[in-house]
Write a protein that binds this DNA or RNA. Structure first.
Length: 292
DNA sequence: AATTTCTCCTGCAAGC
DNA sequence: TGCTTGCAGGAGAAAT
């Protein structure tokens, strides 16, 4: 698997920026309309209407900024006096990359939207499993509203903020870390890695963690995510995750527990355990992460 | 009301 | 060798 979580999305943002900043989008070609949404979540008011009415896809706009919140990416463009926004969620297998002028598509399958820039380059949204999508928003306010539903960004989460959010629920900490309304950006890989680094067992009750443990957890989350961004994210064997230049990341080499169930813990040699928690494969060390 | 389970989708790997 | 089965998971929907 290659699951775009915060570090992967941030790596896409950083690598995409030089391709799109200041560029004008000449045209957008939608090859599969049901990955393009005007508003609302998937499954609700989702698919692009047949006549493409009201869907700008940033056509004719000049790219002003490329922003990230949690696992979501927003391309903000200006056309005339108004701002328009494209939001990307990569889901599990989504890719957003650029092709030099004249370059051919490396992976012609599952390409859903292609944008042509005034530089001659093309920007491609590809997503084999289609858990991701593209949202075409009418203005900046729509983006702010959408992002106001997310918790604070995990890359800069403070202990105090995490404490206040964890104190409100008796769910298991592993489930809570995956909840984007509590904390935005952490997925299965970095939840397990952060819990290991902070020595907290995944089944611990969120509101039962001591202030000291919450502080350790906040430190671990920021540290793991920052190092993963530094490494360009995690690319696993299926090769799904690549940045905007189609380069893989290297952080998978630093995984302490993710996908290492049954193998010895790097710190204490105990056999790492695997279990389904909230229907997510979870790996942890029973000795380094004892129940409090 | 809070929390868990189900569902979507495809590609790959394991098993017979 | 070729089939079936299971698994991976983000997040909203449905169920408890």
């Amino acid at each position: 698997m290659a699951v775009p979580e915060l570090p992967e999305v941030e790596s896409v943002r950083l690598s995409l920026l030089p391709h799109v900043r200041g560029r004008v989008i000449r045209a957008a070609e939608v090859r599969r309309r049901d990955v393009v949404m005007i508003s609302g979540p998937r499954g609700g008011e989702r698919a692009l209407p047949s006549r493409h009415q009201g869907v700008h896809l940033l056509q004719g706009a000049r790219i002003e900024s490329l922003e990230r919140r949690g696992k979501q990416l927003a391309l903000v463009g200006v056309k005339g006096k108004s701002r328009r926004v494209l939001v990307f969620h990569l889901g599990m297998t989504g890719q957003l990359f650029c092709l030099a002028p004249g370059a051919h598509l490396p992976e012609p399958t599952h390409v859903h939207v292609v944008w042509r820039l005034d530089s001659g380059a093309r920007m491609v949204f590809r997503d084999p499993r289609r858990f991701g999508g593209v949202w075409s928003l009418a203005n900046r306010e729509a983006l702010d509203k959408r992002w106001s539903e997310l918790g604070p960004d995990a890359l800069t989460i403070s202990a105090a903020e995490l404490e206040s959010r964890l104190s409100k629920t008796r769910r298991m900490i592993k489930s809570v870390l995956l909840d984007q309304q509590v904390l935005a950006g952490v997925g299965n890989i970095y939840a397990d890695e952060s819990l290991f680094l902070s020595r907290i067992p995944p089944r611990a009750i969120a509101s039962g963690l001591s202030p000291q443990m919450v502080r350790r957890l906040a430190d671990a989350i920021r540290s793991v995510l920052a190092q993963a961004v530094e490494s360009g994210g995690s690319s696993l064997s299926d090769g799904t995750y690549v940045n905007a230049d189609r380069e893989p990341g290297a952080y998978q080499r630093s995984h302490a527990v993710y996908s290492r169930g049954g193998m010895p813990c790097g710190a204490c040699q105990s056999v790492l355990l695997t279990a389904l928690i909230s229907n997510r494969t979870t790996v942890w060390c029973p000795r380094c992460q004892p129940m409090p």
